[in-house]
Write a protein that binds this DNA or RNA. Structure first.
Length: 854
RNA sequence: GCCGGAGUGGCGGAAUUGGUAGACGCAAGGGACUUAAAAUCCCUCGCGCCUUAGGCGCGUAUCGGUUCGAGUCCGAUCUCCGGCACCA
């Protein structure tokens, strides 16, 4: 095999991509006799174009997949498309392209962008969520959830744009206005479908303890999101009625400090208690407004069941109907929010908790307090509970309440049920029909899928286009056969991504829920994706996995054993005072090419089309090849860290690959023909010994750096060091050539996960049969890797004073002797008393001395 | 406000368990090759000071502490980034 003198990436890369396609090396098959490794990157939304930020994500996954393959694992490394969702529908409204066409065309063009990167995907398992064959399973899961009472319908508030007549997602509401038409968004109550994720709240929380392979930060975010809090529910009778107001509190120890009550404007009792409807509307309008607390006295009083005190009941905009019971007891002395409310409406304050014993009574009489004391302490003015400490009092009061039938100890979660209804077209139809006679009726399993019709019109107004399709809406009731109306809402796209990793376990032509496949491949051993999915996607997937477990689809609870959240790729932004954001090529010497004004250099930000600070892999690959792009994006920073894109740095990676190429080219004839084994190391010439040692050290470093949380940046640095030595090595005899061959081959194998194409080419050029990925990952010998001489650092009082080379493995005593023999050290020590000598094996000696004359 | 994380040369970053701070790369400067340039190769490269060989002092956001020894551990402060934010 001959090697071109000059490294031409296009040629090499195309050749090996074709080779991999032909050989089917990236295809996976379940084989229980082999150890499996499931490597998964979060699948992309087909927006049309990828930038190097996306590419980095796939490259990280690809390195892991290729490395694990060489380590002998049967690797599953699939890819697919998160293909339903809003942008396709918006494109339809704006440009008149059908969402399906837009989506499939984008998938096509993204495939064209991905292919040249050289990613080792098994394309036989490609998943496209907008395919009927995929979303029919969303519908199947929906039916199963419905059967189990885990899917239900209830009224809830949504962001509603009156002008577009549509529901908006939270992120589509910008400063309270519609992102598309700028109308003021209102809260509208709609009937919506929900998944009862709260049924698994406790389990999802407990499960966090199992997520040892996840970044702690993400686990913490999940815990906060679930938001467990323990407390009590207590009934407060309302004076002059037979009604009771049930509240939730986490501080039963402050019950004697209640000064007023607050209920949510949407609380069922509110309408009953409030006569002043105008005032109530005012509070309702400010519901959830964080800036101002607004309250309205209902004219009613509640009775504190513990001490019989009579306290006023208010309606307040800050009390949420969705959490707890929708009503609270207000203890202004010990809750900052209640304190502020009390101040605003001039309500009394009563302290019942003292921070500690020393500050006792007295201070509680000493005039107004500046803020609430929210900590724990000792109870005062609390009847029989006075003198108890908060934790003890919480228990005692809760027990008392339960004994007297006034309420009960309760656990609450912030986690809400997952609203999955979208008044949108481009999503999975919810398999439900409404019959006048039978009410809500699920579609029969045998009638799945409910196919999303293609022939629709997009106006952007009047809600889902499905509403205007009589053929779709009008149907028969599965129960009574009478006329019925189909559900026109579609599912949240998070449903699609909550189980796609299970679909990948089987090939396209296999049953989606084939048990043997799933039990072999699941769980995902390494999941890689952006931190932006730390809560929702990952939580929904954990929920779905539990649902699938309870349906018998799979036998585990946690889908992702290890999670890597990679940092974003940023680039500085450029802005012209006249032409706004500029592409990098629109600025020359700090001037705008359009108008010549000074360009303002903005901060580094996540790459985005709108800010024009994107670098696409296509350009880079065209110029330097995929191997260079891959290498640089791995070398520039550890994967979990954000990275600023640097064009200069890319050139450095390119130079490195050229150097590797040149080394192999220069030595290829000798290396190819070399048949010598490596004799005992001691017989080698010292330079060859050195190179061999460096080679083994590098194998060790690259391997441990990859194993140590995928620190590819230092792995690549180690490889560069080896290549620097390889470049300087001058072989003179046959044994030198043998060492060189071994060293070059090792370097190629170590490089292969990072820059796979050039590695294949060079592997072949050194006289080996492809593919390098069928090789076992190289092994190192501790013995050969060990340095024969080590640098001993000599410190005096913690300061480095000398460095000497000493043989490896000296005893502490020998090291002390050597140190004190050193002329320079003798000089420093003369006339000083040595107090102590510390020896750190193989590293340094620290001599502690006193001042002169001591 | 609360909860996380980070802060190291001109830049990206390294230092794995408390033990030589700055690996590797980029940029910069100097040199070789060349008619010339590009490419490539070699050398220098934290800051300050001493005339040099060589040495000395300072230095990991700031201040303090523990230790023979601190980028690493502890306490306080500042800045930046991320998450949550009336959750009762």
């Amino acid at each position: 095999m001959t090697l071109e003198e000059k490294y031409i990436p296009d040629k090499v890369e195309l050749k090996w991509q074709e080779y991999w396609d032909r050989s089917g090396i990236d295809k996976a098959s379940a084989d229980p006799s082999l150890k499996k490794f499931y490597c998964l990157e979060m699948f992309p939304y087909p927006s049309g174009k990828i930038h190097v930020g996306h590419a980095r994500n796939y490259v990280i996954g690809d390195v892991i997949a290729r490395y694990k393959r060489m380590r002998g694992f049967n690797v599953l490394h699939p890819i697919g498309w998160d293909a339903f969702g809003l942008p396709a529908e918006n494109a339809a409204i704006k440009h008149g392209v059908h969402p399906a066409q837009w989506t499939y065309e984008n998938i096509d063009s993204m495939k064209k962008q991905l292919r040249p990167i050289g990613l080792s995907y098994d394309w036989e398992r490609e998943v496209t969520t907008c395919d009927t064959g995929y979303y029919r399973w969303n519908q199947w899961f929906f039916l199963k959830l419905y059967e189990k009472g885990l899917a239900y319908k209830k009224a809830s508030f949504v962001n509603w744009c009156p002008s577009c007549a549509t529901v908006l997602a939270n992120e589509q509401v910008i400063d309270g206005r519609c992102w598309r038409c700028d109308s003021v968004v209102v809260q509208k109550e709609l009937e919506q479908w929900f998944f009862r994720i709260t049924h698994y709240a406790e389990e999802l929380l407990q499960g966090c303890e199992e997520l040892k392979g996840w970044p702690e930060k993400v686990v913490l975010m999940q815990k906060h999101w679930i938001g467990k809090s323990e407390g009590a529910e207590v009934d407060f009778p309302i004076e002059g009625t037979d009604r009771k107001l049930r509240i939730f509190t986490t501080r039963p120890d402050t019950l004697f400090g209640v000064r007023f009550m607050c209920i949510a404007p949407t609380h069922p009792l509110t309408a009953e208690l409030v006569e002043e409807t105008e005032g109530l509307e005012r509070i309702k309008a400010k519901y959830g407004n964080v800036e101002e607390k607004e309250g309205l006295f209902t004219g009613h009083y509640a009775i504190n069941p513990l001490n019989g005190e009579r306290v006023p009941v208010y309606v307040a905009n800050f009390v949420l109907m969705e959490y707890g019971t929708g009503a609270i007891m207000s203890v202004p002395a010990h809750d900052q929010r209640d304190f502020e409310f009390a101040r605003k409406y001039d309500l009394p304050i009563k302290q019942v908790i003292m921070p500690d014993l020393t500050s006792k009574a007295g201070s509680r009489e000493s005039g107004p307090i500046a803020e609430a004391y929210e900590g724990e302490g000792i109870l005062v003015d609390s009847g029989r509970f006075s003198g108890m400490a908060s934790p003890e009092a919480k228990k005692a009061i809760t027990e008392y309440i339960e004994a007297k039938g006034l309420g009960k100890g309760t656990v609450n979660y912030k986690l809400r049920d997952w609203g999955i209804s979208r008044q949108r077209y481009w999503g999975t139809p919810i398999p439900i029909v409404y019959c006048d006679k039978c009410g809500v009726v699920p579609v029969d399993e045998k009638d799945l899928p409910v196919i999303l019709p293609r022939d629709v019109k997009f106006t952007g107004k009047g809600g889902s286009p499905l509403l205007d399709l009589p053929d779709f809406v009008r149907t028969r009731c599965p129960k009574c056969g009478g006329g019925a109306r189909r559900e026109t809402d579609t599912m949240d796209t998070f449903v699609d991504s909550s189980w796609y990793f299970v679909r990948y376990c089987s090939k396209k032509d296999e049953d989606a829920l084939e048990k043997n496949n799933i039990s072999y491949w699941m769980p995902v051993d390494q999941y890689i994706g952006g931190i932006e999915h730390a809560v929702l996607h990952l939580l929904y997937s954990r929920f779905f996995t539990r649902v699938m477990r309870d349906l018998g689809v799979l036998g585990l609870s946690e889908p992702f054993t290890n999670l890597l959240t990679q940092g974003m790729v940023g680039k500085e932004t450029l802005r012209c005072p006249e032409h706004d954001w500029l592409f990098p090529e629109e600025a020359e010497n700090g001037k705008c090419v359009h108008c010549g004004r000074d360009v303002e250099r903005g901060r580094t930000e996540k790459m985005s089309k709108s800010k024009k600070n994107v670098v696409t892999p296509d350009d880079l690959i065209g110029k330097y090849g995929a191997d260079t792009m891959r290498l640089f994006s791995l070398f520039a920073a550890p994967p979990e860290r954000d990275l600023e894109w640097s064009d200069r740095g890319v050139e450095g990676a390119y130079r490195f690959l050229n150097r590797v190429w040149a080394i192999v080219y220069k030595s290829k004839f000798k290396v190819q023909g070399s048949k010598f084994g490596i004799d005992t190391v001691s017989e080698l010439r010292p330079p060859a010994q050195g190179l061999l040692r460096k080679t083994h050290q590098t194998i060790k470093r690259v391997t441990t750096d990859i194993e140590r949380e995928y620190h590819f940046n230092t792995a690549v640095a180690a490889l560069m060091e080896l290549v620097n030595e390889l470049g300087a090595f001058q072989p003179v005899d046959d044994q030198d050539w043998a060492v060189l061959k071994y060293s070059i081959e090792s370097a190629i194998m170590l490089l292969s996960p990072f820059s796979p194409h050039i590695a294949e080419e060079l592997w072949e050029a050194t006289g080996n049969r492809p593919s390098v990925f069928e090789q076992s990952w190289p092994q190192w010998s501790e013995d050969i890797a060990k340095e024969k001489e080590v640098e001993l650092v000599i410190q005096v009082n913690g300061k480095v004073r000398a460095k000497v080379m000493v043989p490896e493995g000296l005893s502490d005593g020998e090291i002390k002797d050597k140190t004190l023999d050193e002329p320079k050290i003798k000089e420093i020590l003369s006339g000083k008393a040595v107090k102590k000598i510390f020896v750190v094996k193989g590293r340094l000696v620290n001599i502690v001395i006193g001042g002169a004359g001591i």
